[in-house]
């Protein structure tokens, strides 16, 4: 019986293992230590690792993320938690200018091995200010890496590779996924002795031959549910490709699935304008135009700020039903 743990537990396990792996890994963020994490991701880590390794920060994102960037220049590996990724916007200068460009402007003399992680999702009834999905904004900036894991296995493997990466990695999770359980082998079940998922490798989450649903983050879960409906009700066999990381991007995996199914839909909880789907569909058009039997569709969140009222907010995000309905228009 394979081990099943939640996304939150898998993430915590990854953090714990990296604290053990490298003395220079330090976790800093609001409520990450004594409070055990606003979403309990870091629960127990302060008790285990103490004040030096797990540090409660004041509500001061520009200050503590900038501080982490400065410390990382000396070889510290700060893993900074944003309670919500929406709060990245108050640290924007630090995250865009300082983390992303110091290496370039120093002619390669400096590198910034920082991880900034936290939930980047809507759909939780908290209004527009706490529901931002900025993966496209940060992926726009060369020098940054953006990772968006959708299941417990990947979140563990990817947080470990992100912490070991020598460039800034912005690691975007989802509060909706924190309680999701999934198979994550324990280290003694693995030949390598630990679970590492490389950044920049997509994963086929469901094999199919009729249409490709390409997605990242929680939209992968919605796409898998949509694929079930397509199979059961319409006898359409959808392939679901989880990008897992936005930048670097597994372009090869995208083209492979498009060449296999000849129909592609990009599904994301991001906004449509210059979203990840805009980038991916442009690349498909340029590189696999002749393989397409239909235009590439993009299914995104509604192009509006997040609605507070729960029944309406749910309709703003891509639902399995919407994915099915739109997919049928090109099948």
């Amino acid at each position: 019986m394979p081990r099943e743990i939640t996304y939150r537990e898998a993430l915590r396990e990854g953090l714990d293992e990296e604290l053990a792996h490298d003395d220079n890994v330090v976790i800093i963020g609001e409520e990450v230590a004594e409070y055990n994490g606003a979403y309990k991701v870091t629960e127990g880590l302060w008790k285990k690792w103490g004040d030096k390794r797990v540090i409660d920060a004041p509500i001061s994102e520009a200050g503590f993320i900038g501080m982490g960037i400065g410390a990382s220049m000396l070889g510290i590996r700060p893993v900074m938690e944003l309670m919500f990724y929406s709060f990245a916007y108050v640290a924007f200068d630090q995250m865009m200018n300082n983390a992303a460009t110091c290496r370039y402007m120093s002619g390669g003399l400096i590198n910034v091995p920082i991880v900034v992680r936290g939930p980047a999702n809507g759909g939780t009834n908290v209004g527009a200010t706490h529901s931002h999905t900025p993966e496209n904004i940060f992926a726009n900036m060369p020098g940054l890496k953006v990772v968006s894991p959708s299941d417990p296995y990947d979140v563990k493997g990817l947080i470990k590779s992100s912490i070991r990466d020598n460039d800034p990695v912005y690691f975007m999770e989802s509060t909706v996924l924190y309680g999701m359980a999934g198979e994550v082998p324990s280290n003694d079940e693995l030949d390598e002795g630990e679970l590492i998922v490389p950044i920049g490798k997509a994963k086929v989450k469901r094999e199919g031959a009729d249409i490709s649903l390409i997605a990242h983050g929680r939209a992968v879960v919605s796409s898998l549910a949509a694929a079930d409906i397509l199979a059961e009700k319409y006898n359409i066999n959808a392939e679901v490709l989880d990008l897992r990381s936005i930048r670097p991007l597994d372009e090869q995996a995208i083209m492979e699935t498009v060449r296999k199914t000849h129909r592609a839909v990009y599904v994301e909880e991001n906004k449509p304008f210059c979203g990840i789907g805009a980038q991916v569909s442009s690349m498909i058009m340029e590189q696999a135009f002749d393989d397409l039997d239909a235009p590439v569709l993009r299914i995104t969140s509604a192009d509006a700020p997040a609605f507070y009222s729960p029944p309406i907010e749910k309709l703003q995000l891509p639902t399995p039903e919407e994915i099915v309905e739109r997919s049928l228009t090109i099948c």
Binding site: A62, G66, M67, I69, G70, L74, N98
Partner: peptide, 27 residues
């Protein structure tokens, strides 16, 4: 920049280097 001389810039945005300074001290 000259990291070999413990010199970490040279920063263009007014005040943007001050959290980095705190971070170097943290390090």
């Amino acid at each position: 920049f000259a990291p070999d001389k413990n010199y970490w810039g040279g920063h263009g945005i007014v005040g943007g280097q001050t959290p980095l300074g705190a971070g170097l001290a943290f390090g």
